[in-house]
């Protein structure tokens, strides 16, 4: 269908075109917020005997952050080099996408079975457990996983840092636990809703079995429902990744940017610049994730426009 394909390409092209604009807005927003920070404006007066330097004009800090982002060369203290930036981006995307993949593979079937068997206590328990997993704070989840899988059952060697495949398992599980919670919940409710609709009865009247009804008829509408809920969750997925990086001492973007109050409270090299670089990186991540979700949505749903 050339019409459909053309429409999808146009919609996605528009979304991609908007991303740089939004990122520019984020950089300006970060610098503007940085000016609100009392710690940033009184930075020089901390040293006695020296008069406070005039704060740099607003456009200057915007320029600094644009240069920093453009050259991927951030920071003044321990040099944050280009290689380090790219490497940490790579590590964080492995964690984020890996956890999304794992939670989809585990969570969607669990949600489907829980929706199809409302009277089966086993599947109901599995679904309730998954929802509970999604509500445990990731910092605590990391502790529980370490003490269960590495120190308790000795299944995964305990290691901090990044290097081998084994290092990625527990962090990915930590983030996946958060994602599984809403994946199961929304797949289950979407599936329940779809199975009530009359085209399912029509499909069954044509002699389709339960497996065929689910696979051919119910799965796509249920997944489109899930995808609409997935978009707003992407920022939280990313922050869970940051927490997992902190817990497992992994050099991802969270660790590299050193996201904590001190970063913004006592600025390393101008708090506006730090903040806008952080917003830029995270905004880019979230926008790319949302773009992928939009593509999947358009691909799944023939009614979408």
């Amino acid at each position: 269908m050339p019409g459909k394909r053309y429409r999808i390409i146009r919609v996605i092209g528009l979304r991609i075109a908007v991303i740089p604009m939004l990122l520019c807005i984020l950089i300006i927003l970060g610098n503007a917020l940085g000016y609100l920070n009392p710690a940033a404006t009184s930075q020089s007066s901390a040293i006695p005997g020296l008069s406070a330097a005039k704060p740099a004009p607003f456009w200057h800090s915007v320029y600094t952050s644009l240069v920093a982002i453009g050259t991927l060369h951030w920071g003044t203290g321990p040099q944050i080099t280009r290689e380090l930036v790219l490497r940490s981006l790579e590590i964080s995307s492995i964690l984020t996408f890996g956890s999304l993949f794992v939670s989809a593979v585990v969570g969607i079937p669990c949600g489907i079975f829980a929706a199809l068997k409302p009277r089966n206590p086993l599947w109901q328990a599995v679904s309730a457990f998954c929802v509970l997993l999604g509500q445990v704070p990731p910092a605590d989840m990391a502790v529980i996983l370490i003490f269960t899988f590495s120190l308790g059952w000795h299944l995964i060697p305990l290691s901090y840092g990044w290097g081998s495949v084994a290092d990625a398992i527990l962090p990915i599980m930590t983030v996946a636990c958060f994602n599984i919670g809403y994946m199961v919940k929304y797949t289950e409710s979407g599936m329940r809703e779809v199975m009530q609709r009359s085209f399912i009865a029509a499909a069954r009247a044509r002699g389709a079995g339960t497996a065929s009804v689910v696979a051919h008829h119910a799965l796509r509408p249920a997944l489109t429902g899930l995808l609409t809920f997935l978009g707003p969750q992407t920022p939280m997925t990313l922050f869970c990744t940051v927490i997992a990086e902190q817990a497992f001492a992994i050099p991802g973007i969270g660790t590299m940017l050193g996201i904590k109050v001190t970063t913004y409270g006592a600025p390393a090299f101008g708090s506006g610049t730090t903040l806008s670089i952080t917003l830029f990186i995270f905004g880019l991540f979230i926008m790319v994730l949302n773009l992928l979700i939009d593509i999947a949505y358009l691909w799944l749903n023939p009614l979408a426009d």
């Binding site: 939004l22 920070n37 920022p235 939280m236 996201i259 913004y264 952080t278 905004g283």
Partner: peptide, 10 residues
């Protein structure tokens, strides 16, 4: 599409 928690933290 903004990183909500960074702004909240700020």
């Amino acid at each position: 599409s903004i990183p909500t928690l960074i702004i909240a933290l700020f």
